[in-house]
Amino acid sequence: MNVNLFKKSLKEIRVSWPSYMVGLLFYVYLLISIYPTVQQRSAEIQELLKSYPKGFIEIFGGGSAVSFTTVEGFLSLEFFSLMWFVIIGAFVIGYGAAALGKELESGTIEILLSQPITRTSALVTKSLNLFISTIGMVVLTVLATYVFGLVVGLKPKVDGIVALIVIGTLFFLAIGAISLFFSVLLGERGRAALTTSGLLVSMYFITVVAGLANWDWIKKLERISLFHYYDSAKLLSTGNIPAKSLLVYAGTAIVFYLGSILVFRRRDIAP
């Protein structure tokens, strides 16, 4: 790792990351603060939910333990199933694509690699920043739900919070690694971000359809979707960390990260 480059990368997100976090935490607080009101009418809302087709709930991220009677079920449906992916996913995809994609696209990579730094070191340093900011974002948002929950008199389960932090962190690290991989492969931020987003939307779509249809092939295909291994409602309510999810996310992150290093070490740099 190169400390000089790390400091420069850190400086680049010194405004954007905190600003993004402030907005995100404010959103979490608003969400938590309305739950006591929602809870008072949870029986009616639960009845309403039952009247919807299963697919409808799936589309909006309803997992196995969807319920408005508990704070875990509410948080899962209202935040950790879809909104969380969109908000943190947008940051991670964008930042993953920009970590080296920006240098490749603008041509500054030529001056950077004219310095005594190996390509691996340049990539590791740039991605370290991506991974730290991703972990920070996941941990802070999940912890915020717990802390804000306490403030408004709720008490989400601690082991559920821990389980979500572990799985959520690995999930977003996997997305970051995919975005990084496409950025070094394609050499452009925009194309890398679009490719990663397209891949994730396809995965989400496959998971939703697999939940609605009874076709064998889509049930099999669903296994390639990262969303198949994620169930925030179950994580928050049981506090169990599924080994399969852990392996899939950690494996995806490692494979794409190593792939990024391999591709970047061998690719031509020609702005």
Partner: peptide, 19 residues
């Protein structure tokens, strides 16, 4: 050995792109 070489190398790329 490019990283070692660059300790003793000064490179001015053509059409230089800067930060």
């Amino acid at each position: 050995h490019s990283a070692i070489i660059k300790e003793e190398l000064g490179n001015l790329p053509g059409d230089i792109r800067l930060y």
